[in-house]
């Protein structure tokens, strides 16, 4: 995942003002790592078993899906969008994948069904946002209910049980290599691929441009529609893949899979330093954010802290992340004004 650090190697002549800004922004990833480390150290000192192989494996299992969806959400948020339907998309994909598998479909094909369903949901979101000119928040709030409705409609009250799924699929879902679950490895690889796409490919950079200044993107002739569709389809497809991983991990899937998950994902992305107004942030940050939130929820029971506090802590982290962005922005603006006021 070395490719994520898209900031070029240090140049001695980095312009005035930008160095301080750079530091704080880079400090963001560092800060997340520090927070993670501190949390782990404290928890482990209270209960050393927190660092046991089983505990770490559970943690990574739990993080796998969140990290995956956070990567997809980042892509959309960078364009000034948001996708609130990811939980429902995951549910739809998980249910369709499990149903396909239980009726004897080969695993690779079922995988395609899951990802394809997610991509289709993403395409619907993208089309509503781009062609319908509906604000992403409203569009995906709508599809959140619509997609969930589709799952309830197809599933009815029934559910797919683990016993209906192929053995190999479930083994893969619970398997690990060197203590790292396969599922987490998949998420990490996908995150790395998305990171490379965002930092090193024209289409990826266009997403930053779109979020940074939509009007300039129009004037520059960037293919805004195509890029927006790419972002939403990618986000949907990753939620679809998340559904497949969900089915593999739990085996038992009913219509409520992934219910209420979307706000956790948005929280992970915001805590990870992706600007909610688009244009800046990395998937590495979002991934770290997702990891941090997962560690918090796993650590609190160990620390015997009431579940209630978990919500409060997540809330405080979001506010802190936003306050930090605002502070950076204000400082930059003030530095600029001071500079502009004594031109020669």
């Amino acid at each position: 995942m070395t490719t994520v650090a898209d900031a070029p190697d240090q140049t001695p002549s980095a312009g005035t003002g930008s160095t301080a800004l750079d530091l704080i922004l880079r400090f963001r990833a560092l800060g997340l790592l520090l927070a993670l480390a501190a949390l782990i150290v404290i928890t482990a000192s209270v209960n050393p078993r927190f660092l046991g192989a089983q505990s770490i494996r559970d943690l990574l299992f739990a993080a796998a899906v969140t990290v995956l969806l956070a990567a997809g959400m980042t892509v959309v948020v960078l364009t000034r969008g948001i996708d609130l339907s990811v939980g429902s998309t995951l549910g739809l994909s998980a249910y369709l994948t499990a149903t396909a598998l239980s009726s004897g479909t080969p695993v690779p094909l079922a995988l395609l069904v899951g990802i394809g369903a997610g991509a289709a949901c993403g395409a619907v979101n993208g089309a509503i946002v781009h062609f319908g000119k509906v604000p992403p928040l409203v569009a995906t709030l709508g599809t959140l209910y619509v997609f969930r409705g589709i799952v309830y409609f197809t599933a009815g009250g029934s559910r797919v049980n683990a016993s209906d799924l192929p053995r190999g699929f479930l083994d893969f879902g619970s398997g690990a290599v060197l203590g790292v679950p396969y599922l987490f490895i998949i998420s990490a690889l996908v995150l790395a691929a998305v990171a490379v796409f965002l930092s090193d490919y024209r289409a990826g950079r266009d997403l930053y441009a779109l979020g940074s200044n939509p009007e300039a993107a129009r004037q520059t002739g960037l293919p805004a529609g195509r890029r927006l569709m790419t972002a939403y389809v990618l986000c949907g497809a990753l939620a679809g893949l998340g559904g497949v991983l969900y089915a593999a991990r739990f085996g038992t899937v009913d219509a409520s899979a992934g219910y209420g998950m979307e706000l956790n994902i948005v929280a992970a992305v915001v805590v990870g330093g992706v600007a909610i107004f688009g244009g800046s942030g990395t998937v590495l940050g979002a991934g770290l954010g997702a990891l941090l939130l997962t560690v918090i929820s796993n650590a609190l029971p160990v620390l015997r802290i009431d579940q209630f506090w978990q919500q409060a802590i997540v809330g405080a982290l979001i506010l802190a992340a936003i306050a930090l962005d605002r502070l950076v922005g204000l400082r930059a603006a003030r530095a600029l004004r001071r500079k502009a006021s004594h031109v020669d």
């Binding site: 024209r202 930053y208 200044n213 300039a216 993107a217 520059t220 002739g221």
Partner: peptide, 14 residues
């Protein structure tokens, strides 16, 4: 211009 991108990227965006 795209404020979040570098000057060089602004020149060559797309």
């Amino acid at each position: 211009l795209f404020g979040d991108l570098t000057v060089a990227e602004n020149l060559f965006v797309g």
